[in-house]
Design a protein around this nucleic acid. Structure first.
Lengths: 135, 135
DNA sequence: ATTACATTTCACCAATCGGTTATATAACCG
DNA sequence: CGGTTATATAACCGATTGGTGAAATGTAAT
């Protein structure tokens, strides 16, 4: 319990059945029964999955007669998207830095040059590690 | 076992300790011991977490003397990013549809029209922002 | 060869997870 | 009212998870 929202969201997304439910929901509201058939799961199992998704803010449920249709709540993905996107940016910047580094290498062969042909897979532990940003 | 990559990645991200390790790794390679101190976890616990992250392709480990430093492997986030981004697009399109719907409502006031001007939810989405370099 | 250090592996534990069946609640329909 | 339908809850089960302490495995340094 008392798990942070990001963990709750990622945990909810870590199950293929749950992701399939979201995919199904992307094309419209659906009831529990309509879900339990194609997934070959019992109805209580679907109810549990829906509860996990709802608790993560990824879906919401309405009330219509006996049924309680579930509907996609796309805003619930924002936290996950923000987190992943931050690292995606870091990833792109890594490539940018690598680009720059290679360019600098080419233009000015440094004093510590060890350009011995097949440069190793760069398992270099590099004291002054290149990446510096974030937190 | 035989869990799909997406589930593996999301499950790896669903733990706050693991995300903190990734954040730490974003500023450079780190050893197991350097990690176990700030996290107040025993070394076996860190080793397990690192194994989960490595299996998800989010980090890689090298070998340097006694230590086996871990390094961020940003490409491992691609699958997660792609999945989330797909739903983010759906989310934006939802707003687009809402825009269109509201516009149609305004141009052709239906029988249930309720054109009380000021209640515009004011969602000025900055569309097609930042994401350069598509996957 | 011995010692010291970093890491992994092993055996265990409590808690959570994803599923089941069986039962309860709730809303509609005669 | 009684019956049907949709969903929820309860109790249980096996597998997985996140943690531990203790022992095994490198790898350097002396």
């Amino acid at each position: 319990m008392t798990s942070d929202p990001l963990s709750t969201t990622f945990a909810a997304l870590a199950d293929p059945t749950r992701r399939a439910i979201l995919a199904r929901l992307a094309s419209g509201e659906t009831t529990v029964k309509e879900l339990s058939e194609p997934f070959e799961l019992t109805q209580p199992a679907i109810t549990k999955h829906l509860k996990v998704l709802e608790h993560a803010g990824l879906i919401s449920r309405s009330r219509s007669a006996q049924t309680r249709p579930a509907k996609l709540e796309p805003a619930g993905l924002q936290v996950a998207w923000q987190w992943v996107d931050e690292y995606r940016r870091f990833w792109e910047e890594s490539f940018d830095r690598l680009d720059e580094y290679l360019k600098r290498l080419q233009s000015t062969p440094g004093p510590d040059s060890k350009p011995s042909g097949s440069n190793a897979p760069s398992r270099d532990k590099e004291k002054s590690n290149g990446h510096r940003r974030k937190h």
